[in-house]
Amino acid sequence: MTSIVNLAAYRFFTLNAPAEWRTPIRARCDELGLRGTILLAPEGINLFVAGTRAAADAFTHWLRTDPLFAGQLVDLQFKESLSAKQPFRRMLVRLKKEIITMHSPAIQPGQARAPEVSAQTLKKWLDRGQDDNGRPVVMLDTRNGFEIDVGTFADALDYRLTKFSEFPATIEAHREDFTGKTVVSFCTGGIRCEKAALHMQNIGIESVYQLDGGILKYFEEVGGAHYNGDCFVFDQRTALNPELKPTAMLQCFGCRAVLTPEDQRSPYYVPGEHCAHCYSRQAAA
């Protein structure tokens, strides 16, 4: 029986005093019994929290209506999924320089955005292999390599990033991959692909879109069409399938590798300690 509501949301906007929001947000989350992580930075807010249905509804209403936020979160859009148990161990509200680190100060999504494409429109493009203007469509995965290994769109470009700050240099080295094509950047929930699309647009790559709401919203609105596998998430659920339900995958406490059910049957797997991948890496060192 599913009893926990998982909320994910972000918004780029100018937040002049992030520290003034930190204590009241933490207090409200504690009052409602929510757990998760909320990031506050001069460029906006990024949150992943989970709790009861009543707590989730009360929190979203508070963010949108409390005078503390001066109306800046009225249009904050939340993605929801359900789970049988709480996927977070504790509640954190952190101050950061960026809500998603790219190290590119010129990229300010709160002031300008690249065009977005809805899940329904993207599916239509992928069904026929071209966009509405007849240009071939290429999907660009902006996530880290280990996330992509859990699942991604068919034939998506995967540059094996280990962190998002590698994205600008990687794209510069592969500009020819996008010539004459429509590029759709995507990620888990939309935050990375929003910055990615804006960066590509700013350096002169033509016909760039971001997938509105990322993979999770795509799953919610059109299911798993053109997508292979599951979607990695940064909580104890590890991965969600196209029905937005947790899978049997786990993540190793030691090396953070994503473990399939077969991996979990290995004699080297000890929950909370290590797995076969840990031993392989030690042997190769």
Rank of each mutant, 00 (worst) to 15 (best):
T65P: 07
T260I: 09
R64G: 12
P24R: 01
A257H: 12
I4T: 12
A112K: 14
R192Q: 08
S165W: 06
A84Q: 14
L76D: 03
C29L: 09
P267I: 05
G190E: 01
Q130T: 08
A284F: 09
R237C: 09
R35I: 02
S118K: 04
I215K: 06
P261R: 03
A276E: 12
Y159S: 08
D141T: 07
A284I: 10
W125K: 02
T179Y: 07
P246N: 11
S104D: 13
A114H: 02
A8D: 03
A84G: 15
Y268H: 14
L47K: 02
F219Q: 06
L47H: 01
L198S: 02
F186Q: 07
M1A: 13
T101Q: 14
R237F: 08
L126C: 00
Q210Y: 04
F48N: 11
N6R: 00
N16M: 08
F167G: 03
N133H: 13
T37I: 13
N228E: 13
G189R: 02
Y209H: 09
L32Q: 05
T179K: 14
T101H: 12
L68C: 05
D149C: 07
C187S: 07
F232L: 12
R35C: 03
V49E: 00
D177C: 02
D127K: 03
H274V: 06
C187V: 06
F13R: 05
T260C: 10
R128M: 10
L7E: 02
L157P: 01
T101E: 15
G223E: 05
T121V: 15
C255M: 10
F69H: 11
V183W: 01
T182E: 00
W125P: 00
Q108E: 14
A41S: 14
A285C: 07
T152H: 11
A197N: 03
C252S: 05
F153S: 00
V74R: 15
T152K: 12
V137N: 02
P115N: 10
R11E: 10
W21M: 09
M249G: 01
L47M: 14
G44I: 11
N241M: 09
Q120R: 13
F48I: 09
K163M: 10
M1V: 12
G44M: 12
G51Y: 01
V138Q: 01
E220T: 11
W125V: 01
E43I: 10
L63Q: 02
E194Y: 04
E116T: 13
V208Q: 04
R256T: 14
P18S: 12
F253C: 08
S81M: 07
R256P: 08
N241K: 06
Y209N: 03
P109G: 05
A173T: 05
V222W: 01
F146R: 04
K217G: 03
T238I: 14
D66H: 15
A41L: 10
Q201C: 06
F13D: 07
A225M: 04
C29W: 02
K181Y: 00
G71K: 10
G189T: 03
D66K: 08
P109H: 09
D230Y: 15
A257C: 09
E220K: 14
A196L: 09
V184M: 04
T14W: 07
I45Y: 00
G145I: 11
S118D: 04
Y268L: 13
N46R: 08
D132E: 15
P67H: 12
T37W: 03
R53P: 08
